[in-house]
């Protein structure tokens, strides 16, 4: 893909990007501490952040950015208008377009508040609305900034499935602090702190190497087991069933019954 960033230093965060070239397709995570420049980097790729030095080439790709705060991307007084404003009257009546709209409405469960004001929605529902807008716009590259925030468990699952399906033939970059969520379906990622990795790395290795404080007891258990060189995988803690299966094996091993 002809999107490249070279020799750019971002303001405030000071993140330096020596050279970065976008992969052709797939889903990649962008991880790093608060204030490291993850959101700025996505804004730079989307063309919303101007920098004084370096070069940013975006080619002719259509790039969509779902921002951290869904309210930054809502402007209309009806959910329907928020979805449809980018399209002219002719397009709006085309059968293929109407079929796409129906599919997107169903995917993001918007039917119940199609004629409501977006401003009356909860934060999780607003985020779903912005996902739906970009689902319909169908950009070549989709940038998602903290997409799992404010979503309940069901919608985290549904969003994961949508992103994974989309990444089969599109590029998706996800900035997040939600390690369990991204590790559950993203293989590779970039670490962002001072500098940006120029090549994506195995996300499980990144999680272990960066020694981030654990988000929960199962993650903490797994880190302890890995530190003790137990024969467990880097990502097994993401799924409690897999983790339990592995722990049962360890238990039997210790007690002499395999």
């Amino acid at each position: 893909m002809a999107i490249t960033v070279q020799g750019v230093t971002l303001p405030y965060s000071g993140l330096f990007i020596e050279h970065w070239q976008a992969p052709a397709a797939g889903v990649y995570a962008v991880m790093g501490p608060n204030g490291a420049g993850k959101s700025q980097w996505l804004s730079l790729l989307a063309g919303q952040l101007k920098v004084r030095g370096g070069t940013v080439k975006r080619g002719r790709h259509r790039i969509g950015l779902v921002m951290q705060h869904p309210e930054h991307q809502i402007a209309e007084d009806r959910v329907s208008a928020e979805m449809l404003w980018p399209y002219g009257e002719t397009r709006r009546t085309a059968p293929d377009f109407l079929a796409s709209v129906a599919q997107v409405r169903t995917r993001w469960a918007l039917d119940g508040f199609w004629d409501d004001s977006p401003w009356t929605l909860s934060t999780g529902q607003k985020r779903r609305l912005v996902f739906a807008v970009y689902d319909l716009l169908n950009p070549d590259v989709l940038l998602l900034d903290e997409p799992s925030e404010a979503l309940d468990g069901e919608w985290k699952d549904r969003t994961r499935r949508w992103v994974a399906e989309r990444a089969q033939d599109h590029l998706v970059l996800i900035a997040s602090h939600d390690w369990p969520w991204v590790l559950s379906f993203v293989d590779q990622g970039y670490w962002c702190e001072g500098t940006l990795d120029n090549k994506p790395r195995d996300l499980g290795e990144l999680w272990y190497e960066r020694q981030v404080p654990p988000s929960g007891r199962l993650e903490e258990l797994w880190r302890e087991l890995l530190d003790r060189s137990a024969p467990v995988g880097l990502r097994e803690w993401i799924d409690p069933q897999i983790a339990a299966g592995q722990a049962v094996k360890l238990w039997h091993w210790k007690h002499g019954a395999r």
Binding site: R217, L225, P240, A244, V248
Partner: peptide, 27 residues
């Protein structure tokens, strides 16, 4: 996840115990 993990552990290894232990102790 911790709850789900121990539901399975306790069903497959009766008497394993450890739900209330710290992750370090379980490790």
């Amino acid at each position: 996840p911790w709850h789900e993990f121990w539901e399975i552990m306790e069903s497959q290894v009766p008497g394993a115990g450890g739900r209330d232990k710290s992750p370090g102790e379980v490790a």
